[in-house]
Write a protein that binds this DNA or RNA. Structure first.
Length: 678
DNA sequence: GAGCACTGC
């Protein structure tokens, strides 16, 4: 029926999204379905804008892959992606979100009996495997953005390879944006030792049929001119700023996106640009510099999406967040400093570092691609072409530079006892494995044969907190402080976002914090903040504002706490109705705070340190100098022995965060094997 | 006496 017959011609409503028939992927529909039909594994290579995440699940559903009540799962490395893609697909599919099309992320399960296409985070799918090891409710599992090599998606690939042998009918789709397609295909084609023995049993499976195939989809992007510097930049920050002005004065209209490495640089750049833009000739277009980084309050992050006012050119100075997590329309020019801050983990010291590292070719390509989303663009790389050619193809995957303890625990709980022989796409270094196994053993999660202990180890695996905190929580009932420990676990898992680093002066922020300070340290301080919030903050709108507390973070702490409590209830561990520390200190249970500190020691004994006369700390072996992070109460207080939640090296110094005073003899009492020589 | 790229259960 023509639109005119319906009388719609008077006022057209612009389409929210491109009709799917216009997406390049539509041309590949039949080829794609045929490959999925005939191969257990399909590698889809498509750039951003190819529509793979939204279209492939719908093609599959229409082709009958959801018969018999089976479900198609699509995993995403980020929560936002899982929700936004689900919303879009539900719209295109013409259903209410949570019916045929739904999503599931931690704390939010928007699915139902009717759900056939389900978007979820990769970490959550691993958790589902704990309950349903063969992921038997899914007919097709698509791992989206697999090229990002998140630790969870890497582990999922290993699990799926294993599951595939027991479920030959399962279809696996790996979506990859870059040159890594062959590597994924090789991974699924190679048989492991374990698989070889399984294949001899299953001789009916055709040995010579290819396991997988690669399907390429073209993206819908515009050409981008790549420009390099003639000589290496001495100071890329300065070079970035001058490049912005060069673009502004000599290039046509269009917003600029500048990739830098961190908050410091970004704030400096924003300041420098606003100062220098005053010197622009009168009457010329002005520059509007905007910062973008994860630590920025959400409202301020939103400014980057607003259109610049008339006669302004928008310049966004961003961290890596704009490389994949956040997409800004209207960017025509990209300036790439060539560096990214990467997290690394030193298995010898157990210390995480965050260091600026040259980007990979894959990252550089992704950054440049941000310029060509709406029309032809330009990318200014602040390094020479020679330097570009010397860059690695990709950064080392996360699994090779992380603390593996939480993942080893999960694999063990999935029945994979020999984690050293688990089929990793890229095996982690042996020292990382050893370190993780040693920690899990010291915590009592593994026995002398490296088998998961029951119930302790199994329960630790099922709790969605780090192993050290899981152990602490499971010890809490015997110290009579489960209620408090649940709160502390929820609060520490927020990772520093409790205080709003508003425009208010530092002193003001300090004094706000001091109101909740507990002599024993940061953990009890966090407990005080939470308890004040649940008694006052939820009722009084001004509470958070007056105390510079992040309301959203506190709400999140409440749901994390509730989730942890429910998990423990499933183990038959219920919260005691113990009184708050404040009350305890004032009255009957004077030792409550001590019980909490003791309980923390049962999980965090490996994170112990002793204060030196100069106020710095040393680790137990005395080999490393540690500093209380400026956000810690212990930053300017006296202490002797302490335990801490987190350790991180940044710049020249190694900082510890969330610190609580303990007694030295508790270390030997709760971790005799670990501290036998003390 | 001074600061953390980005995810996630």
């Amino acid at each position: 029926m023509a639109a005119a017959e319906l009388g719609l011609d008077a006022g057209f409503i612009p389409a929210l999204h491109k009709p799917s028939a216009l997406l390049p992927i539509a041309k590949h529909r039949d080829a794609l379905l045929y490959t999925v039909e005939t191969h257990p594994v399909t590698i889809v290579v498509g750039q951003t804008g190819s529509g793979k995440s939204t279209q492939i699940p719908q093609f599959l559903e229409k082709a009958g892959w959801c018969a018999d009540g089976k479900v198609i799962a699509i995993t995403q490395p980020r929560r936002v992606a899982a929700t936004t893609v689900a919303i879009r697909v539900a719209e295109e599919f013409g259903c209410e979100l949570g019916k045929e099309v739904g999503f599931s992320i931690r704390f939010e399960d928007v699915t139902s009996e009717a759900t056939r296409i389900k978007f979820l985070t990769d970490g959550l799918l691993i958790r589902e495997a704990l309950v349903d090891p063969l992921l038997s409710r899914y007919s097709v599992i698509m791992i989206d953005e697999a090229h990002e090599r998140s630790i969870s998606s890497d582990i999922l690939l290993g699990l799926l390879k294993k599951i595939r042998r027991k479920r030959p009918e399962l279809r696996i789709i790996i979506s990859s944006a870059t040159l890594q397609a062959e590597e994924f295909l090789r991974f699924f084609s190679e048989s492991t030792e374990e698989a070889k023995s399984a294949d001899t049993v299953k001789s009916d499976e055709k040995q010579d049929a290819p396991v997988g195939a690669i399907v390429s989809l073209e993206g819908r992007t515009y050409p981008i001119d790549i420009l390099y510097t003639e000589k290496p930049a001495e100071d890329y920050l300065e070079k970035a700023i001058s490049t912005v002005f060069d673009i502004h004065t000599s290039e046509p209209k269009g917003d600029i996106l500048v990739f830098l490495t961190g908050r410091d640089e970004i704030e400096k750049a924003v300041e420098a640009v606003s100062e220098r833009s005053a010197q622009l000739p009168a009457g010329s277009e002005a520059i509007l510099p905007l910062p973008l980084y994860a630590g920025l309050p959400t409202e301020k992050q939103m400014y980057v999406f607003d259109e610049a006012p008339a006669n302004f050119r928008k310049v966004i100075f961003s961290t890596n967040i704009a490389e994949a997590s956040v997409t800004i329309d209207g960017i025509v020019y990209v300036v790439d400093c060539g560096y990214v801050k990467l997290r690394a983990y030193n298995p010898q010291t157990g210390i995480e570092t965050l260091t600026a590292t040259p980007v990979s070719k894959a990252s550089a390509a992704q950054r440049a691609g941000r310029a060509g989303r709406t029309k032809a663009g330009k990318c200014f790389r602040l390094y020479t072409e020679e330097a570009y050619l010397a860059l690695p193809d990709a950064n080392p995957p996360e699994i090779q530079r992380s603390n593996l303890a939480p993942f080893i625990l999960q694999l063990k709980a999935l029945g994979i006892d020999n984690v050293l022989r688990f089929d990793f796409l890229t095996p982690p270094p042996a020292e990382l494995m050893t370190r993780a196994l040693e920690l899990l053993y010291a915590l009592g999660a593994l026995d002398d044969y490296a088998k998961l202990t029951k119930p302790l180890g199994l329960r630790m695996a099922e709790l969605a907190v780090e192993p050290m905190m899981a152990k602490t929580l499971l010890s809490a009932p015997s110290f009579g402080c489960l209620g408090e420990m649940l709160t502390i676990a929820a609060m520490t898992s927020l990772g520093g976002s409790i205080w709003v680093q508003g425009d208010a002066g530092k002193e003001e922020a300090e004094s706000a914090r001091r109101k909740f300070a507990a002599d024993e340290g940061d953990h009890l301080t966090l407990l005080n903040v939470y308890q004040a919030f649940v008694t006052k903050g939820r009722k009084e709108a001004r509470f958070c504002h007056d105390n510079l507390i992040n309301f959203k973070a506190m709400t999140r702490a409440m749901s994390i706490r509730a989730q942890l409590r429910r998990w423990l209830e499933r183990f038959g561990i219920t919260e005691d109705d113990s009184s708050s520390v404040a009350q305890a200190g004032a009255g009957a249970g004077v030792n409550k705070a001590e019980q909490i500190r003791r309980c923390l020691t049962t999980g965090y004994f490996a994170h112990a340190a002793r204060m030196q006369p100069d106020g710095s700390f040393r680790n137990v072996s005395g080999t490393t100098v540690l500093h209380a992070h400026p956000s810690s109460l212990m930053f300017n207080r006296k202490a002797d022995w302490v335990i801490f939640h987190e350790i991180m090296e940044s710049g020249e110094k190694t900082f510890i965060r969330d610190i609580t005073k303990i007694e030295k003899n508790w270390l030997v009492e709760y971790a005799p094997a670990f501290y036998s020589t003390m």
